[in-house]
C-alpha cells in the first residue's frame, strides 16, 4: 500500500451505508503461502488428486480461514488505521476454488455512540455491519457480522 486512505469517522457513517467491496481471485500460490502462514497441512488445499478423487471436490479448496481473513480485510481496509475490529463472526457456507472471483462486502446495520466509557481516551463510536463473502455468480460463501470502533471527529 503506497498511500493511506482518508480515515473514516463515526460521525460520517449511517445505517445502510455500504463499505467498499473487496474483489479477489485466489490462486494456488496465495493458498500455499496462507497454508504455510497458518501451519495448515490439510491436503484439500494443495493436493489436487486428493481433493478430487478422495473428497469429491472439483479442485483444491480455498481455505475457510483465508475466506474469513479476506472478509475481515474488507472491513479493516474500510475502518483505517484509527479504527479497531471489536467483534467478527462468520459461518462457512460453501467452498471456493482457485480462479473463482470472490467478493467481500459489508453494509452498516447500526451505529452506537460510546458515551463516557473511557473519558481518558478519544471519543469513539461502535458500528455494526452485516458482512458477506460471495462468489462472482452471487452464491454466498460466508455470511456474518462485524462490530468496529471508529474515532469521532474533533
Amino acid at each position: 500500500m503506497t498511500s493511506t486512505p482518508p480515515q473514516v469517522h463515526f460521525d460520517d457513517v449511517n445505517v445502510g451505508d455500504e463499505i467498499p467491496t473487496l474483489t479477489v481471485t485466489v490462486d494456488p500460490t496465495q493458498m500455499f503461502f496462507f497454508s504455510a502462514a497458518t501451519y495448515n497441512g490439510h491436503r484439500i488445499h494443495y493436493d489436487r488428486q486428493w481433493a478430487k478423487e478422495v473428497e469429491g471436490y472439483p479442485d483444491i479448496v480455498v481455505q475457510g480461514p483465508l475466506q474469513a481473513a479476506l472478509l475481515a480485510r474488507a472491513v479493516t481496509d474500510w475502518i483505517g488505521s484509527a479504527g479497531t475490529l471489536v467483534n467478527y463472526a462468520v459461518q462457512n457456507r460453501a467452498s471456493a476454488f482457485p480462479g473463482d472471483e470472490l467478493r467481500f462486502r459489508g453494509v452498516v446495520t447500526a451505529v452506537r455512540a460510546e458515551i463516557g466509557a473511557d473519558t481518558a481516551g478519544p471519543a469513539t463510536g461502535l458500528v455494526d455491519l452485516e458482512i458477506t463473502g460471495l462468489k462472482g455468480d452471487g452464491q454466498v460463501l460466508m455470511p456474518g457480522t462485524a462490530t468496529v470502533r471508529l474515532p469521532r471527529r474533533g
Partner: peptide
Amino acid sequence: EFQRWAASVKDRNPL
C-alpha cells in the same frame, strides 16, 4: 509471523 500471515492475505495495511 504475523506479517507473513498478513502478506498471505495480501493485507498490506500499514498498521
